[in-house]
Amino acid sequence: MVNQVYRKNIYKKSSSIVTLFAILLLVLSCEKYLDMEITDTGRKPVVNAVFIADTFPVVKVFESKHILDNTHYKNISNAQVNIIVDGQPWSLTYDTIKRIYTDTSLRISSQSNVIVNVDTYLGKAEGTTTVPIHVPILSCDTFPHFDKNGNYDGVELRLRFKDIANVHNYYMITFHSNSLYPTFDAYNEPGLEYINEKIFLDDFAFDGKIKTLKFFVYRYAGKYMNYNGIIEFYLFHLDESLYKYQLSLQKQINTGNSPFSEPVMVYNNIKNGYGICGSASYFKFKLEL
């Protein structure tokens, strides 16, 4: 009898503990969010050195940040930044207003080989590039454009340039207008990508040939806005590194951190650091409509 009472008590206590445990677990399980840690491997120097043919050199140096660090980027102002242009060393000085390392007395010419050496408190970083030569825009012809029913609906622009033969070339084309709205209808073509209003071209499909790109200024744009105006086209001839960097960067920006987009790795050619050491030449073409 005593045994039975004892057992009952034990059973009751056990039941209470089990019930309490179950309730506790259920309450705890409502917490669905959990903070995670990301291992911090330390900071690295960021070197953004893009050399444009026939302009003075500009190098920006920053400190990278841990992904969870939300503060402003820190500019490194006390770095030693040296460049070697075709074997000739140059020391760049820091412009405290523009926050860049530069030497306005120096012009980087096309086909120059440039090596960048940056020495910071985060360590030494290095990059190298060869400045591409100018590729001019040959013409930008205009044609009246008609819709399927034969009605005039705007102007078609045909931008032409000639690719340099037997060399692997990379281009980026941008276009701007203060009053018109030119459009570029991206189409499937090997080596062509159109992202964030920038056209990227790899010449493997038109090596040494004349390349024509079609733009449109539709009539409605002129009807409701100013139909006359100036369109500026920039044809950038990029070295391979800058092409890869720009293309991947624009893709990463384009994803907007959407969870449904595939991640994009941005190209990096800085030894012991992040950033880009690249170069370009450009040709500007103004079209008045």
């Binding site: 900071r43 980027y73 960067l249 450009y282």
Partner: peptide, 19 residues
Amino acid sequence: LPIEHYPAHEFLIGEHYYF
């Protein structure tokens, strides 16, 4: 998953070198 971030190179022509 990104583990670090840093400023990108701004591709501007002319005197636009601010970050």
